[in-house]
């Protein structure tokens, strides 16, 4: 009986690993595929016959750095994304503190309103936002991108941080109060250090959304002055050279890599942050 159970458990484990391997493959193959396209000469990419042993080539690598201002796009991306995350944190931390700690009329409604801004299809506000930034004279600048990314992400950054703050025992703040700390001190010295994992989680998710943002970036960035990686990708599809698949693949891979590394590094916090948001609502 025991032996049988043990055996079935073993089979179970094999099955589990098979499923997990299948899933891993499903996730990883497109990435590797992209990498392999990016590191092949253009001539080998679109052929009617499969090539089992492709030629390694850095054509695309040279092209994206030498023929295109990819360095500038990368800098734009980084600046816009980090800028937006900083704006988000500056606004979201006090907002979340207020939503999670102070009692006032309409608190829940305000919280829900903040979240609900995320429920609208972005295309609805695309045109108004275009005019808004035109009137502000911010078209084609990374400042505009920063503000847009920040606005898009602010709601859930606030929400995630709020859910972490709700998890902090009220006693901790009472203790700090009787120890002589004021509200700002409490926020700065007690709350923020205690919810650092939540802040990191929210920041990373905001970065991922920002790096993938395409619609508004395309709308705002009309020249390479404010192009980001995601919009730069679109540049490889037009023009006299046709669709430059290997360059697209390589840029996409380069855009994916830093996010991937960060997510792996903070995996533990990330899953906790997401489920906490889910459970606590």
């Amino acid at each position: 009986m025991a032996a049988k159970r043990k055996k079935s458990r073993g089979e179970n484990l094999v099955l589990r690993y098979l499923i997990l391997c299948g899933w891993a493959l499903f996730c990883v193959v497109p990435v590797l595929w992209f990498l392999s396209i990016g590191l092949r000469p253009r001539t080998e990419i679109i052929t009617p016959t499969p090539i089992y042993f492709p030629t390694f080539s850095l054509d695309a690598w040279h092209m994206i750095w030498e023929d295109w201002p990819m360095g500038k796009y990368l800098r734009n991306s980084v600046a816009a994304i980090f800028g937006s995350v900083i704006i988000d944190l500056i606004l979201a931390i006090p907002a979340a503190y207020s939503l999670s700690r102070f009692q006032y009329r309409g608190r829940e409604d305000i919280g829900f309103y903040i979240l609900s801004t995320r429920m609208m299809a972005p295309a609805i506000v695309a045109v108004p936002i275009f005019f808004l930034f035109r009137n502000l004279g911010l078209l084609d600048t990374i400042w505009a991108l920063m503000l847009i990314y920040a606005a898009i992400n602010l709601s859930f950054v606030t929400w995630i941080i709020r859910s972490y703050m709700l998890d902090i025992p009220k006693e901790l703040e009472d203790a700090a109060k009787t120890d002589g700390a004021g509200e700002l001190r409490i926020l700065w010295e007690i709350i923020i250090p205690a919810i650092l994992p939540g802040i990191i989680t929210a920041s990373v998710i905001a970065m991922i959304f920002a790096i993938n943002e395409f619609l508004f970036t395309l709308l705002i960035a009309s020249t390479p002055n404010a192009y980001t990686m995601s919009v730069a990708l679109a540049n490889f599809t037009g023009g006299s050279d046709g669709i430059i698949y290997n360059a697209i693949a390589l840029v996409a891979f380069l855009a994916f890599l830093p996010v991937f590394v960060v997510v792996v590094a903070i995996q533990k916090h990330l899953s906790r942050g997401l489920t906490m948001g889910a459970v606590k609502g």
Binding site: P169, D174, E189, I190, P193, A194, L196
Partner: peptide
């Protein structure tokens, strides 16, 4: 406090 309320960080 009952739960000690030590600052964890």
């Amino acid at each position: 406090f009952q739960g000690y309320a030590l600052y964890p960080n």
